[in-house]
């Protein structure tokens, strides 16, 4: 599908693909009636969709700010607003530490996997060499392996590396987990850069490294952002490895596993739990909404261009 070039979602030109232009043989009155009806249907659909999409997040926030969320009989909006839940979670709950740990893990994972994936994707997209196809197949296949299958051997592996209970052990694993997808997606971006641009750089006397920095890198930046979002999510949300590799080292817990532990201690104090959930979710949400456009173009390029 080579026609599919990365396209930002909300180009003004593409908007209103069906609704606006006055066209064709349909009588004016019928058309107007149909237009209003379809607008009404659309409005209803949008409302339903927003309801379904936002309710969990809304409910999470509402409970997080409610003074007595766990007591039952809750109304849609908090009966008594409070910040006490957040305060508790960030101090006694230990989420200040979990957040810090997650931030470190996510940052390192994003940087390391971006660098490794970019280099590797240039290799597979720009060079012909023996085993290239085999390599690509392997990357694809590895991407499909279920995490659960890797828990046991990776646990043993990380133990052999003496990295159990450490953030480093977790980072290394996350980098490995986000690499295949990253390479696969960036490959599409690198391939989309016209080879003539590179050649022009060489003609100007640039070395390969210079060309890489000043031609290739800026052009694949959107792809890099997209892959980074993915490795960030992997690192921030991942649960099963954090649970097994960190074991008893509470001081190294990431947010996902920290929340599980917190839930175990406060299983009926929903105000706390929802406050903790909110704190974990907000950074990801902000991140997501900001990169929304680039993300979707990156996705299309990566997944479709393949």
């Amino acid at each position: 599908m080579s026609t599919m070039t990365p396209a930002p979602v909300t180009t003004p030109a593409a908007s209103g693909a069906t609704g606006d232009a006055s066209r064709g043989a349909i009588p004016r009155t019928r058309r107007t009636a149909r237009k209003t009806r379809s607008a009404a249907v659309k409005a209803v659909l949008v409302v339903l969709l927003l309801g379904f999409t936002l309710f969990p997040a809304f409910w999470m926030l509402s409970s997080a700010f409610d003074k007595s969320a766990g007591a039952g009989g809750q109304t849609l909006l908090p009966r008594e607003w409070t910040l006490a839940n957040f305060e508790y979670v960030l101090t006694e709950g230990g989420f200040d530490v979990f957040l810090r740990n997650s931030a470190i893990v996510a940052l390192v994972t994003v940087l390391a996997s971006a660098v490794l994936a970019l280099l590797a994707s240039v290799a597979v997209a720009r060079f012909r060499f023996r085993f290239r196809t085999g390599m690509l197949l392997m990357i694809l296949v590895v991407q499909m392996v279920p995490l659960e299958a890797l828990v046991i051997p990776l646990f043993v592996q990380v133990r052999d590396l003496q990295l159990l209970n450490t953030l480093l052990g977790l980072m290394v694993v996350y980098v490995a987990l986000s690499l295949p997808f990253g390479i696969w997606m960036l490959r599409g971006f690198v391939a989309a850069v016209p080879i003539e641009l590179e050649e022009a750089a060489y003609i100007d006397g640039a070395s390969w490294g210079r060309m890489f920095r000043s031609v290739l890198l800026p052009l694949v930046m959107p792809g890099l952002v997209a892959t980074s979002v993915f490795s960030f999510i992997t690192a921030w949300n991942e649960f099963i490895f954090a649970m097994t590799l960190l074991g008893g080292a509470t001081e190294n817990y990431t947010v996902a596993i920290g929340l599980k532990q917190f839930f175990g201690e406060h299983s009926n104090e929903w105000g706390y739990i929802m406050a903790a959930s909110t704190i974990i979710t907000i950074p990801v949400m902000i991140f997501f909404v900001i990169v929304q456009r680039r993300l979707s173009s990156g996705l299309v390029a990566g997944a479709v261009k393949g």
Partner: peptide
């Protein structure tokens, strides 16, 4: 943006 929010919610939370 709304569906981004749904997407962004980590599986655990």
């Amino acid at each position: 943006s709304a569906i981004m929010i749904a997407w962004a919610m980590p599986a655990v939370t």
